[in-house]
Design a protein around this nucleic acid. Structure first.
Lengths: 111, 111
DNA sequence: TGTCAATATGTCAGTGCTGACATACCTTCG
DNA sequence: CGAAGGTATGTCAGCACTGACATATTGACA
């Protein structure tokens, strides 16, 4: 995929509106990014609720701290599969995740 | 992942109950398989609603008929990313998908 | 029966994702 | 200030996923 760099910039620059506001993503790309962002947020929320550091979570997942950071940053090198497996490993259920996905993410305000 | 073969058998033998009934999947594995199955079913439903053949859908996705078949079969070689991208390409929204995920899939009855 | 369209299954080369590692950034505490 | 704990970012070898192709199976219609 050649959109990697674009998506990377997009993910990083995410500050004000929703995903599709940046760099004219197609509707389906926007939906996908949106989906991933929801999962990322859910993961961080769950980790913090369990009072785990990224290092501790990484150990539990058999992964590394850097990957956990990238998961939570919704980095384009992270797959939805990895995000889902991580969430399930933290005890999330498909229903819970569905519920999180159903409610649109909160918007961030410009600094 | 070494569970690939196991998952393959599992996906194929899926007939009577839910995913976790086979080969003692761990809860998180079961949840993941369950999640994928929901997406697979959603994809087939959507494709058929649009009166597209697998070949036609494959062309639209820039993929192949065999991959579409595997997506709909929830084959272990198919990622959630691919399933999601395909659904979004067919016009599904994150909310719609979330709604599908929220309702547990129908059970299949033994032949 | 045979043919045709649709779907399923198997294989593989190329590429994208993963875990690991290094390193930088940022707070908090002394 | 320096040290320590937590988080972010960049890179890379190795493996998992992908599209493509071949082939098999199924179902409908004569």
């Amino acid at each position: 995929m050649n959109k990697t760099k674009r998506a990377k910039l997009e993910a990083r620059g995410w500050v004000v509106g929703d995903a599709k506001d940046f760099l004219r993503l197609s509707p389906e790309e926007a939906a996908f990014v949106e989906f991933k962002l929801s999962l990322s947020e859910a993961l961080r929320t769950r980790r913090e609720a369990l009072h785990l550091s990224q290092v501790a979570l990484a150990k539990r997942l058999g992964s590394s701290q850097s990957r956990v950071a990238k998961m939570e940053a919704s980095d384009p090198t992270v797959s939805v599969d990895l995000l889902l497996r991580s969430l399930f490993a933290l005890g999330a259920t498909p229903r819970e995740i569905a519920a999180k996905l159903y409610r649109p993410r909160k918007r961030r305000i410009a600094a």
